[in-house]
């Protein structure tokens, strides 16, 4: 940190008090308490607790509905990340060229950032609805959202679409930081534009790509709740029910408190895993400076 700092024994703590008050009451304590409850059976009305060991976890991992939701979430997240990042990178590369009207293009490409997942859900619900959805009209298929083999596909498209603006902004910023000297040197060595992109630009983009992979994964796992609630409510026949929707139903609709707490703990472990993965990869592979 800075060599030059203020000398004041008390003030820094005073400055941190408001933040830590909120953190302790609304983050650390609830997290700890949720993890504790995962080991208990809790009565839905009286709130009476009985220690149950790993009972909730055993129930979760023998529940076929949960297991299929687990894999479904994984497939969902991976697909959203891959399609979303590829398309966004492509658009960002276009935006990074020098031509007229780029600022205008930029505005019109990143503004869906300001839209909510619920709004994306409503828009795609209209586009694909069985009665008079436009996509149904143009493709001749009207069952996109009512067929359990295609509904997930629509959720993925909607989720990718909604997050394009966010991803494009980050890729565009990163592309602008790629040193032109490296690209020019490669050009002199006879590397064509495609090779230049993959051998140089792509290397420089790897830290931001890992960052976006993490952000998009958590987006797919958590923020897409609103999208799914508006678009399919997890249906048809549970085919779009991802873990967060499962958690919502178990906790809020069915009041299975201990069970839901255990689901939360599993989600937490997933977040930890993803974050560790990011730290590992960013430390080992992507050192270029």
């Amino acid at each position: 940190m800075k060599s030059s700092s203020f000398k004041n024994p008390l003030l820094p703590y005073v400055l941190l008090i408001p933040t830590f008050l909120i953190l302790v009451v609304f983050l650390f304590y609830p997290a700890f308490e949720t993890f504790r409850l995962s080991l208990f059976k809790v009565h839905p009305y009286s709130g009476a607790e009985r220690f149950a060991g790993f009972y909730n976890f055993k129930k979760i991992f023998t529940n076929p509905e949960y297991l299929s939701s687990f894999w479904r979430s994984l497939v969902f997240a991976v697909t959203v990340v891959i399609i979303g990042l590829m398309f966004s990178l492509f658009v960002a590369v276009l935006l990074n060229q020098k031509a007229r009207g780029m600022k205008l293009y930029r505005s019109f490409l990143i503004w869906p950032y300001a839209l909510s997942p619920a709004i994306a859900g409503a828009l795609f619900n209209f586009l694909f609805n069985p009665a008079n959805g436009l996509i149904g009209y143009f493709t001749g298929v009207r069952t996109w959202l009512t067929d359990s083999s295609t509904a997930m596909f629509i959720i993925i498209i909607a989720a990718v679409w909604k997050n394009l603006g966010y991803n494009i902004v980050f890729y565009l910023t990163a592309l602008r930081n790629v040193p032109t000297s490296a690209l020019e040197a490669a050009a002199i060595d006879g590397a064509g534009p495609v090779r230049r992109f993959f051998s140089i630009t792509f290397t420089y983009l790897s830290p931001i790509t890992f960052f976006l992979m993490v952000m998009n994964t958590t987006y797919a796992y958590f923020a897409c709740f609103g999208l799914i609630d508006v678009l399919t409510e997890g249906g048809p026949a549970g085919s779009t029910q991802i873990l967060i929707y499962q958690l919502y139903k178990d906790f809020f609709v069915h009041s299975k408190i201990g069970y839901a707490a255990a689901e939360s703990l599993i989600l937490f472990l997933l977040v930890v895993g993803i974050t560790m993965l990011q730290f590992q990869t960013t430390e080992k592979k992507v050192h270029y400076q």
Partner: peptide, 24 residues
């Protein structure tokens, strides 16, 4: 340590603590 605690909050999005947050 305090900085580390702030970092840790990144691991605790609402769904991870929702059961007890609702109680609080």
């Amino acid at each position: 340590f305090f900085f580390f605690l702030i970092l840790v909050t990144l691991l605790l999005p609402v769904p991870v603590r929702i059961v007890a947050l609702f109680d609080v």
